[in-house]
């Protein structure tokens, strides 16, 4: 009896050791690409082209970042990205929250109509192509408006916020109404403050998705006047174009002689990734809550 206990315990310990090793390897696979790019981005470009840079820069150089932060296209991209995140997130949050509140007003005769109109679109959406034709028709292509207007209301987040509002005591809203507050005032003064937790969670998600958007920029803003940072990075990926961009602008300066497309690309990728990592603690705090909230909404 005792020997059998010992045997299973040895097997169990072996499994633990193997499992820890496996999970360590797994963690490395998840994080290594970023560390590799980080090392490359701080390395001298000519030296990096020799290869063999894995975890640490071999010949330290900041010129990739120096060039990028002097490059007009990259700074413009950064500006449009930030503008898009700020405008897109705040407007969508405000509008979607208001919608979630309206469908929760008990005595409102249109709440079923609103709910159904929006809910159906969760299943039936024509994909990107009919939307593209619509943007052409409305003349919204090559404008900043496509960054916030088509995504002004988000049905999934509406359901999330609506279920949060539903769990609040109705008396809160009712007492404000008795005091003579209009519905918009109730939303602004009461709903928004008490829904802060869910608003915060949703806003982090919206911000990340706006920051990460790439395809809609390519689709709706082909002129290049509103290129975001993701589009700028994509340009650099097409190596020839990337090289030309450098040469045209600043490669002639001796100062940037030690650049290569590889390090430039790495530095741009890091610049695009860092904001995500900055909000990552918030993302992590909220997304487990988001998933559980989402699963009870039915």
């Amino acid at each position: 009896m005792k020997s059998e206990f010992l045997r299973t315990s040895v097997g169990s310990k072996l499994f633990d050791a193997g499992n820890i090793a496996l999970m360590l390897a797994f963690g490395c696979i998840m994080i290594y690409p970023f560390l590799n790019l980080l090392a490359l981005s701080f390395n001298d470009g000519i030296d990096a082209a020799r290869g063999g840079i894995y975890l640490f820069p071999r010949k330290l150089s900041l010129s990739a970042y120096e060039l990028l932060f002097q490059n007009h296209k990259m700074l413009e991209g950064l500006m449009w990205s930030v503008l898009r995140v700020v405008v897109g997130t705040s407007l969508c949050l405000f509008a979607t929250g208001l919608l979630a509140y309206l469908v929760n007003i008990r005595h409102f005769s249109g709440k079923r109509l609103l709910r159904i109109l929006f809910f159906v679109t969760m299943y039936f959406n024509g994909g990107f192509f009919p939307a593209y034709l619509l943007m052409l028709k409305l003349g919204l292509t090559n404008s900043f408006q496509v960054y916030w207007l088509p995504s002004l209301f988000n049905v999934y987040f509406m359901l999330l916020i609506a279920s949060y509002i539903q769990n609040q005591p109705e008396a809160l809203f009712e007492s404000a109404r008795i005091d003579g507050a209009g519905e918009f005032r109730v939303y602004w003064r009461i709903v928004i403050p008490i829904c802060m937790p869910v608003f915060a969670a949703v806003s982090v998600y919206l911000a990340v998705s706006h920051w990460n958007s790439w395809f809609d920029v390519v689709l709706y803003n082909p002129s290049g006047d509103y290129d975001t940072l993701q589009v700028y990075l994509r340009r650099l990926l097409l190596e020839m174009e990337g090289l030309q961009q450098i040469q045209d602008q600043q490669m002639l300066y001796n100062k940037f002689r030690d650049l290569s497309p590889l390090t430039l690309r790495a530095a741009t990728t890091i610049i695009v990734t860092v904001p995500i990592l900055l909000v990552y603690p918030f993302l992590q705090k909220y997304f487990i809550g988001g998933i559980t909230l989402g699963s009870v909404k039915g």
Partner: peptide, 19 residues
């Protein structure tokens, strides 16, 4: 660590793969 890649864009993933 395991969630990080979920939150980055496909453009960044493409850049990683190119590298």
């Amino acid at each position: 660590l395991s969630y990080i890649p979920y939150f980055i864009s496909w453009v960044v993933v493409a850049s990683i793969l190119f590298t």
